[in-house]
């Protein structure tokens, strides 16, 4: 009898403990992290997989912000492409999502969603039996990646002396120190520079599935091939903390703010600061850019 009560009591304790653990799960670091930004999908049945020639068919897309940056109302845009828009009676150019497109957060772990309605398509051209075609949509949005990476500020003298406040050795980027976004900080390493400076090598990479552009541009301006190719892979990097950090940018003076350009999707930027003393600090960066992603749907148009 006693044995039974012991077993039941033990099982109950296990249950309680697992319940407690679940409550403790969640974001313990600054950011959730990840490589998600804003995704785009066609809304269910808008358009449907198949329809008849001459039929009016709704076309809508759903934008979902699974990253950790909120997008102000009107800034996330989408357009339909891949088909002759006149033939299909669809509007040309970008349409904005109304309402703020919130990123992942405490009150919404999945991120926010917004729908953009493109009206009805109508295909009136001759169809013999049936015709397969692919309708595509593109999302274009401004985004930011933020970091909260613990670093060690230490001069080479302190390093030689072996001051143990903190170490500049090893990888500084850890899980939860970079916000979820398609442009990521892959690595931050430190080295001493001269006698009283510390250098940070920051590796930036496009980890998303889309394309990145300079944040100064509008979505519409990307239609111009020359503008598009001239602004591709350019990201504005700004060091918010520590103060006094300067970075070497390809163009312009060394500064805490400048443009980096990805080469094959990756770029390493070197920054440095004076290190008169030894202390721990937090490297807070902001990467600002425009990002685009696409989706497609195959549809079959049947002869009326």
């Amino acid at each position: 009898m006693m044995k039974k009560y012991v077993i039941i009591g033990f099982l109950a304790l296990l249950l309680v403990l697992s319940g407690c653990q679940k409550e403790d799960e969640g974001k313990t670091s600054t950011f959730y992290g990840g490589t998600d930004g804003v995704s785009i999908e066609f809304k269910d049945a808008a358009p449907p997989d198949q329809f008849n020639q001459g039929e009016e068919i709704p076309v809508s897309v759903v934008l979902k912000n699974s990253g950790e940056y909120d997008i102000v109302s009107g800034n996330a845009e989408a357009e339909i492409y891949g088909i002759n828009l006149e033939t299909f009676n669809l509007p040309k150019g970008y349409k904005s999502a109304t309402g703020i497109l919130r990123g992942k957060g405490e009150f919404n772990l999945e991120g926010g969603e917004r729908e953009i309605d493109f009206g009805n398509l109508k295909y009136d051209e001759e169809v013999i039996n049936s015709r397969d075609t692919i309708i595509r949509a593109r999302v274009c949005y401004p985004y930011q990646t933020k970091t909260d990476i613990p670093i060690c500020v230490k001069s080479s003298t302190s390093e030689e002396v072996g001051e143990a406040v903190c170490s500049i050795e090893g990888e500084k980027m850890a899980e939860g120190t970079v916000s979820s976004a398609p442009i990521q900080i892959n690595s931050v390493t430190e080295k001493t520079r001269g006698s009283n400076q510390v250098r940070f090598d920051i590796k930036v990479e496009n980890k998303g599935v889309g394309k990145v552009y300079s944040n100064e541009l509008s979505c519409d301006s990307l239609e111009d091939y020359q503008v598009e190719s001239g602004s591709k892979d350019k990201i504005l990097l700004e060091v918010i903390n520590p103060t006094g950090v300067v970075c070497g940018f390809r163009s312009g003076e060394d500064s805490n703010k400048g443009i980096i350009e990805l080469d094959n999707g990756i770029e390493t930027v070197s920054c440095w600061m004076e290190a008169d003393d030894t202390y721990t600090d937090t490297l807070r960066l902001t990467l600002s850019y425009m990002y685009t992603d696409t989706t497609s749907k195959e549809v079959t148009i049947f002869e009326k």
Binding site: G82, I83, N84
Partner: peptide
């Protein structure tokens, strides 16, 4: 064309 398009060649 301003963007990729796929159309029937009749």
């Amino acid at each position: 064309v301003e963007d990729i398009e796929e159309n029937p060649l009749k």
